[in-house]
Design a protein around this nucleic acid. Structure first.
Lengths: 186, 186
DNA sequence: CAAGATATACTCACTGAGTGAGTATATCTC
DNA sequence: GAGATATACTCACTCAGTGAGTATATCTTG
C-alpha cells in the first residue's frame, strides 16, 4: 500500500514513465496502454502485455495511479487508471530532468522523454535535446579522461571504454540530427 | 534442484557466462570471482558482490557448477566452485556462438566472449570478431529496410530506428579497430 | 600498542523485470 | 456454423539487482 522505503532503482529503465505519460494525456486502461506502447513507442520499448499490468499494479500500490473498474455492455470490464496528484507530479519532474549518461538510459529513457515533450510543447523538446547533448558532452569528456588514465596494460578495459565512447559519440550525432529529422527545423 | 522448464531468458544479459568463464580457467570462490569481474571486466559489467552469489546459487541449482566448502586456517571458510560437465559444455558452446544484434547484447555479451576467447586462443578471437561483424552487417541491412518501410508519418519510430542504426554502425567501426587496438594486428 | 579501517568471505530478505500460460466473451471472416 | 482474432485481464513463476547484516583477521596510524 504505502512505501516506507523508496525504490532502490533508478527505475527509469522500465517503461513506467511511458505509461505515466500516456495516463497524463488521458485516463485509460491496460490493454490500450499496451497498444499505444507498441504502436507509438515500439522502436523504443519492447514489452509484453502482462508486463504492462505488472507495472500498473506496482504504480497503484505505490499510490501513483488509481484505477476504477468500468463495466461495459458487451465487452469485458476494464480498469480505467488515472494519475494521482503524486503520480502527476512525479511525471512532470521526470519530464524535465535530463537522463544520465549510460548508453541504455539515453537510448530508451531520453527517447521516451522526448516523445512526451514533443506531444506537449516543441520548446520543451528543444531544451531537452540541448540539455541532453550537454550532459553527453560532459560524460564523454569524463570517459576520455578515464581512458587516458587507464594504463596501456589494461587493454581490455581500454577497449570497453573505447566502445562506450563510440556509442556516446554516435548518440551525440543523432541528437544533432534529430531536430531536423522531426521536420521541425527551426 | 533440477530444472523441468528451461530458462525463459536469453540469459546472456547477466554476467553468468563471465563467471563460468573464470571458473573454466580454474575453480575458485565467490569473493575472488567478484574481484576478477571488477578488475578485469569492470568496464563491461557493473555488478555487486551479492549479485555474484545470486548467480552462483542459481548456477548450482541448475547443476552447471558445484561448490565444495573449504575451511581455512585463519580466514573465513569459503566455497570453491568448479564447472560440472554440463556447465563446461554450456560455456564452450556459448564461447563460439555469435551474439544477436541488440546493442546491449553486443556491448556486454560479445565483449565478454571476446575476453575469454583472447585468453584461450587468438585465432578464436579473430574468427569471433569476423563473425560478429558479419552478424551486425546483416542486422544493419534489416534495420535499414525497416526504416525504408516505415511510413514517413511514423516520425518517432523512424527516429528510434535511426538511433539504433547509428549505434550499430559505431559498433561496427569499433570492431574494425579492436584487433589493432589490442596490439595484435595481423 | 590500541583503535579503527580495510580485507576476507558469505547470507538473507527484499523489490522489480520480464515471461508464458490461462480465462472468458464478443465480433469478424470464410 | 466453425474458427480465428480482438478485447480485457489474472496468476504463478524465474531472474536481476540492491542493501544491510555477520564474523574474523590483518593492516594502518596516531
Amino acid at each position: 500500500m504505502s512505501i516506507s522505503r523508496s525504490s532502490p532503482y533508478a527505475s527509469a529503465l522500465s517503461p513506467e514513465f511511458a505509461i505515466s505519460g500516456f495516463l497524463a494525456q488521458r485516463p485509460t486502461h491496460g490493454y490500450d496502454l499496451y497498444q499505444r506502447l507498441t504502436d507509438e513507442l515500439g522502436q523504443v520499448w519492447y514489452i509484453s502485455l502482462s508486463q504492462v499490468y505488472n507495472i500498473l499494479k506496482r504504480l497503484e500500490d505505490q499510490g501513483l495511479i488509481l484505477g476504477e473498474t468500468e463495466t461495459q455492455d458487451k465487452l469485458p470490464a476494464r480498469r480505467l487508471f488515472h494519475l494521482t496528484e503524486a503520480g502527476q507530479q512525479r511525471f512532470e519532474t521526470w519530464l524535465r530532468t535530463p537522463t544520465g549518461c549510460s548508453v541504455r538510459a539515453i537510448r530508451v529513457e531520453f527517447t521516451t522523454r522526448l516523445y512526451f515533450a514533443l506531444a506537449r510543447e516543441h520548446s520543451l523538446a528543444h531544451s531537452l535535446i540541448d540539455a541532453q547533448a550537454a550532459a553527453i558532452r560532459s560524460g564523454l569528456a569524463r570517459l576520455e579522461t578515464s581512458l587516458d588514465e587507464l594504463p596501456a596494460g589494461q587493454r581490455f578495459n581500454r577497449l570497453g571504454l573505447a566502445l562506450r565512447i563510440g556509442q556516446l559519440t554516435s548518440i551525440l550525432d543523432w541528437l544533432g540530427a534529430c531536430w531536423p529529422d522531426l521536420g521541425l527545423s527551426e
